[in-house]
């Protein structure tokens, strides 16, 4: 989080825009990234050896898997849409309900979730010890294969998955020709209509909880934050997701119920803002959203 402070300070000085560009480089431990990468793509973490982190967080699908709900071991279907792993390091908490405070905590979740990888972290430790992972871990961590070290390596890898140099970022950096006028108009509307109040900051989201369905009732199986705090006030409050690379991460919303980007723009403006946007406005805003796609990590 330290780097966030740094970034925030620097960019808040140079930019007065409510959105900040992603840094072009992020400091990571290369050894840990390599190990974490190996783990991320290794199905050994799942009980039946069919699911790896990358199964749901695909590098070629914007860090998600293009499904409303993802598949776990034994062909089970999950209960919530897979959020993108890209730029996830910039989120203030992890999971839709914020039950993990950082990437390292989050990594345990899917591993032990019975409908996802369905494994036990302690068992995995033992399994990994008997493989070449033992040597690889020993090379980096004094205590070899442990729960902390596994998640630390995975988290370090995930940290490296940033997508800088989106056209909008470049525009923010001063390149006026990085985005089209349409997109600039879209951004202006994004701000004036109040979308910016939740989707802002370095990750264009990911820094607060918001009620799903401010205006009127919206159906949702998941209770969001309530399932963590058990506080009635927290019912249907979810972490605001990032809009970066949004055009790659369909379907949208925590239940993956909306496929098209235009549609989710309409949905949001109705249920979050209580407004009806004109077709033109929707198109412009959608166009703007498309300018948020950055350089995908090369794996």
């Amino acid at each position: 989080m330290k780097h966030l402070i740094y970034i925030f300070l620097i960019f808040s000085l140079s930019y007065s825009e409510p959105i900040s560009p992603i840094p072009l480089k992020i400091t990571t431990d290369n050894k840990k990234v390599a190990l974490g990468s190996k783990l991320f793509f290794d199905t050994i973490l799942s009980k039946d050896n069919t699911i790896s982190c990358a199964t749901c967080h695909r590098m070629d699908m914007g860090g998600a898997d293009g499904l409303p709900m993802s598949f776990g071991i034994n062909g089970q279907i999950g209960n919530i849409n897979t959020p993108t792993v890209f730029n996830s390091t910039f989120n203030f908490v992890q999971f839709w309900d914020g039950r993990a405070k950082n990437l390292q905590e989050q990594a345990i979740g899917p591993i032990e979730n019975p409908v996802e990888m369905g494994h036990n972290i302690d068992n995995i430790v033992e399994i990994l010890k008997s493989t070449e992972y033992h040597k690889l871990f020993k090379a980096i961590y004094k205590d070899g294969v442990t729960k902390e070290n596994i998640t630390d390596a995975i988290a370090e890898f995930e940290k490296s998955l940033i997508t800088p140099n989106s056209p909008f970022d470049n525009f923010l950096r001063g390149d006026n020709n990085a985005i089209t006028q349409n997109q600039k108009d879209g951004y202006a509307l994004f701000k004036s209509h109040g979308c910016i109040s939740c989707h802002h900051g370095i990750n264009i989201g990911g820094n607060l909880y918001a009620k799903f369905g401010v205006i009127g009732e919206v159906k949702s199986d998941s209770m969001g934050r309530f399932s963590v705090t058990k506080n009635p006030y927290d019912k249907y409050f979810f972490k605001v997701p990032t809009l970066r690379n949004i055009e790659l991460t369909s379907p949208y919303l925590h239940n993956g119920q909306i496929e098209k980007l235009e549609d989710v723009v309409k949905f949001m403006s109705h249920f979050q803002l209580g407004k009806t946007l004109t077709e033109n406005e929707v198109l412009k805003i959608t166009d703007f959203l498309k300018s948020l796609t950055g350089e995908l990590p090369k794996i």
Binding site: M1, L4, S12, S20, F92, H200, G201, L208
Partner: peptide
């Protein structure tokens, strides 16, 4: 008012 919560998040972490 519109508040950029990145700063708030940072402060909370601090």
């Amino acid at each position: 008012n519109f508040i950029n919560y990145d700063g708030v998040v940072t402060k909370i972490d601090q």
